[in-house]
């Protein structure tokens, strides 16, 4: 189980996720969603409490450095290492075997020897997601991970993330602007403007009532 009660300068997120569950963050631009995700990773300062599988990442006394938090982070700008091939990028925090397996799973094995500057936006995004999962993290954080993907690729990647999440048991928190992506993937939704976390089914009912 993962418990988060974290406070950044602009937002306050409190939620509990079970293994393999996903939380989608929905809200307008510039409201602090990226900062919140970065704070969970400890790339930004934050107060509060994070407990992942009984391991304290953050509380009044402890703040584990980013390297010691078992996370996979998909950055908005992908942050692929330009000096490494696709295979080397994914194998950076795992092994070549694991990287090859993920390249096959994400249908991008044909890109393995290419360098990031030769990839399209959508290809980079897929590589970035594969790299974040390659580390076998406990928590996958994704900042607008589907923005550069076409509809069919997006659904394929979302299904793959869901499948890997079930297999590996990692928790996922992601930001998306497309409500469809959030509904399709997440178990809970953090409605930033209302500052509340609700069940996705509940959100569906509320949407119908509106």
């Amino acid at each position: 189980m993962m418990y988060i009660n974290i406070k950044t300068r602009l937002l306050n997120l409190k939620c509990t996720l079970n293994k393999s569950q996903m939380l989608g963050i929905l809200g307008p631009s510039g409201i602090g969603k990226t900062t919140l995700l970065r704070a969970i990773a400890n790339l930004e300062k934050a107060d509060g409490e994070i407990i992942v599988d009984n391991e304290v990442w953050l509380n009044d006394k402890i703040s584990l450095p980013v390297q010691n938090r078992s996370i996979g982070f998909v950055f908005q700008d992908f942050a692929l290492f330009p000096n490494m091939s696709v295979l080397e990028n994914i194998a950076y925090a795992s092994s070549k075997e694991k990287a090859t397996h993920l390249l096959e799973a994400f249908n991008i094995i044909h890109l393995k020897d290419k360098y990031p500057n030769k990839l399209s936006g959508g290809e980079r995004q897929r590589v970035a997601i594969a790299r974040a999962i390659a580390r076998e993290p406990k928590l996958l954080l994704m900042d607008e991970p589907f923005s550069a993907l076409d509809r069919s690729t997006k659904h394929f990647i979302q299904d793959k993330i869901k499948q890997l999440s079930q297999e590996q048991g990692f928790y996922t928190i992601f930001i998306a602007h497309d409500i469809g992506d959030i509904k399709r993937l997440s178990d809970f939704i953090f409605l930033v403007e209302d500052n509340k976390v609700i069940n996705t089914d509940e959100f569906e009912k509320e949407s119908i009532n509106i």
Partner: peptide
Amino acid sequence: PKSLIEASYTLGKSKFHTLLKV
């Protein structure tokens, strides 16, 4: 880009490893 360095940290790599490899 700062995100390259941060990406290396999020992948569990130390500052020294990041200096050498990234």
